[in-house]
Design a protein around this nucleic acid. Structure first.
Length: 272
DNA sequence: CTATTGCCCTCTTATAGCCA
DNA sequence: TGGCTATAAGAGGGCAATAG
């Protein structure tokens, strides 16, 4: 006897009909008929009396139903408990992490207060590798097309701005641009494209992390490109040309597999 | 270790039969 | 005739055994 047998049995006992039980469970009627027949053979006792208006529960079915209700409700309870204590492993590039992680954590905790979230920051190529090896449950990436074997379960557009210090006067074409070292960083690439279009001569300083980029912009005449959410009160922002003023961020998971049922449930909730 | 094969199980569609 | 269950046949996926 398996749990799915009990679920089918419970549905038949409740609805007093193979057809209605099938409809409720998303099966077709012959399948329910066969599964009940198999269960009766296995238990060596008839559970239902068939009529041409449905089925009637026999005393044996009423006995089994009390156990089925208890077993299935315990299963549901266990699943609920485990869901609330899951560990979600998320990956993102350093800059995307700083920008998205607080918001993402808040969103998850709204639905699953006990879920633990761990964040890995790395290069995009390494994040995809980890995702494929099931070391991560999902990754935040800036992408035009999602690679085979992965799916984007939600995405949003982030507005980008050219930012500089509010208190430092504009020094004209001569200046410093601060960017992330990672050649895959979307903000770095947008800034370089912008400067290239403008044919500006600037010194480019590269940093590993977001913090020194922000500090440089706030306190020197350096410029950079940042998303709206990272622009601070010490910065002034300028709109970028239409073709480069936004990027799309996807939350990508490996197709057809989440580490377990629990993580899958969280991901399904997030994608709604 | 990997690919192939065969078996079993669960599911479906199509259809037969029963009876109020 | 409509609403129901029963049966047959076949598709598809999982899994263990086997061959290379």
């Amino acid at each position: 006897m398996e749990l799915s047998d009990l679920r089918i049995f419970q549905a038949v006992a409740r609805s007093q009909s193979f057809s209605k039980a099938a409809e409720n469970l998303g099966y077709v009627q012959p399948n329910v008929t066969l599964r009940i027949k198999k269960l009766e053979n296995e238990l060596k006792i008839p559970l239902f009396r068939r009529t041409n208006r449905g089925v009637e529960t026999l005393p044996s079915a009423l006995t089994l139903l009390t156990y089925a209700d208890r077993i299935l409700s315990l299963m549901d309870e266990a699943e609920e408990k485990l869901t609330s204590q899951a560990l979600l492993s998320i990956g993102a590039t350093p800059i995307l992490s700083a920008q998205l992680f607080p918001k993402f954590t808040q969103g998850v905790h709204l639905h699953f207060p006990l879920v633990k979230i761990e964040l890995k920051t790395d290069k995009k190529s390494q994040l995809y590798l980890d995702l494929k090896q099931n070391l991560l449950d999902g990754i935040f990436v800036n992408e035009r097309t999602i690679p085979d074997g992965c799916i984007s379960i939600f995405s949003y557009t982030e507005k980008l701005f050219l930012v500089s210090a509010r208190s430092v006067p504009d020094s004209g074409d001569e200046g410093i641009a601060v960017v992330n070292k990672n050649p895959q960083c979307p903000y770095r690439n947008t800034l370089l494209r912008y400067l290239d279009n403008k044919m500006n001569t600037v010194d480019i300083i590269e940093y590993d992390t977001l913090e020194p980029i922000i500090r440089s912009v706030e306190s020197t005449n350096a410029v950079t490109v940042l998303p709206q959410s990272l622009v601070t009160s010490k910065m002034s922002k300028v709109s970028l040309p239409k073709e480069m003023n936004s990027i799309i961020i996807h939350f990508v998971v490996k197709q057809g597999s989440a580490k377990n049922k629990t993580v899958r449930k969280i991901i399904e909730t997030l994608s709604e």
